[in-house]
Design a protein around this nucleic acid. Sequence first.
RNA 1: GCUGGCGUAGCUCAAUCGGCAGAGCACCUGAUUUGUAAUCAGGGGGUUGGGGGUUCGAUUCCCUUCGCCAGCUCCA
Length: 635
Amino acid sequence: MSQVSVEINNQRFDVQSDSSWAQVIADHLGNSLDTSSILAVEVGDHRYDLMATVIPNASAKTLTFADEGGLDTFRHSSAHLMAQAVLRLFPDAKPTIGPVVEEGFYYDFGAQPFTPEDLQRIEAEMAKIVAENLPIRRIELPKEQALAQFADNPFKVEMIQELEEGTISAYQQGDFIDLCRGPHVPSTSFIKAFKLTKVAGAYWRGDINRPQLQRIYGISFPTAEELDDYLAKLQAAKERDHRRLGQEMDLFSFHEEGTGFPFWHAKGMVLKNTVVDYWRQVHHKYGYTEIQTPQILNQVLWQMSGHWDHYQKNMYFTNIDDTPHAVKPMNCPGGLLVYKAKMHSYREFPLRVAELGLVHRHELSGVLHGLFRVRAFTQDDAHIFCTPEQVKDEVVNVIRQVFEIYETFGFSDVHVELSTRPEKSIGSDEIWQIAEAGLQNALESQDISYQLNPGDGAFYGPKIDFHIRDCMGRSWQCGTIQVDFSMPERFKATYEAADGTRKTPVMIHRAILGSLERFIGILIEHYGGKFPLWLNPNQVKVVPVSDKFLDWAQTVTDALAKAGIRADLDSRKENLGRKIRDAQLQQYGYQLVIGGREAESGSVSVRLRSGEDLGAMPLDEFVNRVVTEVANRTL
RNA sequence: GCUGGCGUAGCUCAAUCGGCAGAGCACCUGAUUUGUAAUCAGGGGGUUGGGGGUUCGAUUCCCUUCGCCAGCUCCA
C-alpha cells in the first residue's frame, strides 16, 4: 500500500493511501483535539465524510458543530434520521427533500399526513435508531441503478432525472437509503439531542400547482444542554409575544368583525401617541412639514400611478356616487396631488413633506400575524422633492435621522443594505448613475458599512433599507429610502429651474419606523412589556397603605399629573401587598407607597419595577426625578 | 389563498364511551383598614364561534362557514 501526504488543520502527515479521514484524525490528532466533536472535513469548498478515503495532497479542515459546514452536516444527518424513523412507522410515506434551514431542518413527505401526536412516536423511533448506532455509509451508483433503486418514489425519480449523467450518491443507514449529496456524520449515534417542532403543509418544489407534501420540522444539537437552552429561548420568546402582552397589558385587540385590523385601546394609544409625539419633534428638527391626504381616492388616480396595474390585488375598492374609488394602499399619489396644488421653484428644494398615512392593504389571510402583519397600518412616510444633484445630501440627512430615532428607542445594532438597478427598470442611465452614486456616497460619507445587493432595487429607482436587531437577536426591516424617477413623471409634477425651464423633480420616498403598528409590536417584544419610562403607558402607581391616607395619595397623584406624568391612584380597599403586586404585573415603572409617615412629612416612598426600594423622598424631589427621566427618554 | 391544528364564562383551561357545562383569575356585594408581589366570605356570569345534519339525547360524531395558531424562499 502506498503512502500519501495530507494536511489536516495545517498539519501535514504521511498516511496509507486507503486511510479514511477519521483514521488519520484518530491516529495523529487524537492527543491534541477533541476528535469526538469532529463531524466532517472540508477541502476547499467541498465537504467530505469522515469515513471517506483521504485525498492525496489535499489540505483539509476539520468541521465541528460550531462550523457552518459541521452544523449543516449534523442537521442534515438529523433529517435523514427523522426520515428513517418516519419510514419505519409509515412505510407508504414518500421522502422528497430534507434540507437544513436556519431553525434546524425539515423533511417533506408525499402521500402521508401526520398529526402532532405522530411527532412523539417519530421522536421515540428516532431515539431507537440513535441507540442502534447504525453506521452511515456512502454509496455511489450509476444513474440507471439509482433510478431503479428509487423507482417507487416519483419525487426521487424526478430529482435523479434532473441530475447529470454519471455516478449518483446515496447514503445508507440500516434499512434506510436516501439519495443524497452528503456529507453525513459517521453513525446515527452522533445525533444526541433532537426535537420535532412542527408539522406543516408545503408544496413540492414550492409550487402551488404541484402536489402538496407534509413537512416535519425539527431541531437537533450534539448535547441535551444545547437543546434545552434552545427550547428555553423559544419559551422566553413566547412570553414576550406582543399578541399576548398586548392583551395582558390592555394595549390593543383584534376582532372577527375586522380581520387583520387592529383596535387600539387607551393604554395602546398612549404608546402610539408617545411614539408619534417624538416622531413629530424629530421631523420638525430635520426640516419636514407634515400633511394628510384622504383615505379614499378616485380609481383614475390609481390607474395613473400604476397601482391599478401592479398592486390591484392588494387594494380595496368602493363606489362613491357610482364612481369607482380605491382605499389608499400607499400615500405617494395623494402626496403628489398636494405637490401639484401649486407651482414649485428649485428655490424651495429640497421639499421635505411627511405624512403619517393610514394605508389599507389586502394581505392573504394566512399571513396575518398580530401587529407584525396587518391589513391597515400607519406608515411614517415622507416624500422629498429635490434635484438629482441634491439626492446625496438629502439621503445623508435621512440617514442621520434614522440612526437618531433608532437610538432613542434603544436599537443600536442597525444593518444597512443598498440595492441597485434591476434588469427591468425605467429611467435613463445618467439619472440611475447619479442616484446610485448619491446613495452610495451618502452611506460612505457617514462611514456606514452596508451590504450591496446588486439588481435588487425597485424598477423605478435604487434604495437603501435599514434593519434593526432586537434583544433576542432577530432582525427587522423598518426603514427604507427609495429614489423614484417614475412617479413624478407619471403625474407630470414639475418645478421651475434656475434657467427658467420646467423640470421634473426627483422624489425620495422614505419611512423610518415603517409601520407604526409593526414597530410598536417590535418595541413590545424588545422590551418584553417593560418599557422605558417615557414610553410606558403605566408610569407611576400611587399605592396608599390604607384608605386613611387617600387624601395625601390623591394630592401626590394630582401633582404628578400636573407635571405631565401618567400617574394612577389605586384606591381599592385591598391590602398593600395586593396593590403592589397588581402594579408590578402592569409594569408600572414606579410604585409610590403612601402611609402615615409619608402623609405627615409630605413625602413618598419609592419602589421601582425592579423591586428595589429607594425609601422615602420629598414629593418635589420625586416629581423632578421622573420628569427628568421622561424628558431625557432614558432607556 | 393552500395544508394541518385549534375554537367551552372577560382571561387561562377542565368536562370518561354521545347522557344535567365546571375550576382558578377577573368582575359585583359584604367583612377586613392593611407598610412593599395574591385577606376572607358570598354572588352574578354560557345559544360550548355561527349555521345545518345524524341521534331519544351533541361541547363530544358529520357537513358547512367564520376566526385564531403554525407552516407554505431554503433543492439530492
